[in-house]
Amino acid sequence: MASPLEQFELHKMVTADVMGYDVSFTNSAMFMVVTVVLVGLFLVLGMRNAKLVPGRWQTAVESTHEFVVGMVDENIGPNGRKYVPFIFALFMFVLFANLIGLIPFAFTTTSHLAVTFAFASFIFLLCLVIGFARHGFHFFSLFVPPQTPVVLLPLIVLIEMISFLTRPLTLSVRLFANMTAGHILLKVFAGFIISLGLAGGIWSAVAVLPMAMNIALYALELLVSVVQAYVFALLTCVYLNDSINLSH
């Protein structure tokens, strides 16, 4: 039986390298393309001949937009409006990648730390750039919460700095770990179904149990896919808010 980790392996479909660096087109890259194409189709076809009274598809597009705008307004405020396209793209990319990954035999791009860490690092750098551009060196006051007793100041600043610097790590590991763990579980129970089914006799009947488990897990994974996409976008908003509005 194949290892539950086999699903995360990359297969080079087109080998390519630029100046000695390996940039081969893999199954992971292919599913990134699929994700982008599906999101693009969702947006373009949904808003094709957009009407005043929207149809179902147009409603779906408008609702997701409403959702992201609401999240940005709530967490960043009016200054965050220009980051709506970025947050929207981020949310839709992660959401579609997570959901596409749940289709059997599909590859889950967001189950790779490389992908989630690239996102998280970019967001971290974006926060730094925006923070220093808007507030200059005053941005360092992010590490000093208001009304901190002077005695506790060194400790608090240290804690704040660590929590700030580990943001890319926590942001990326949360998504990667959720997706990886879910897919491993699904694969393990799927393996049980096959081996019990092939065992014959009474064991074939017992195979119903991991099957039921997998159905329940699949439902859970659908929820996790949506929730993790939401959390990823939400935390991005929260981090951007720190840089844009510098609450303390």
Partner: peptide, 29 residues
């Protein structure tokens, strides 16, 4: 590296698609 490279490319395209598509959504709303 191959994943990050393709991610930058695909997400870059996606960002442009979203930037192009959202004004229409906003206009309709």
């Amino acid at each position: 590296l191959p994943q990050v490279a393709w991610l930058i490319l695909t997400f870059g395209v996606m960002y442009l698609v979203v930037r192009a598509a959202l004004p229409k959504v906003e206009a309709v709303k």
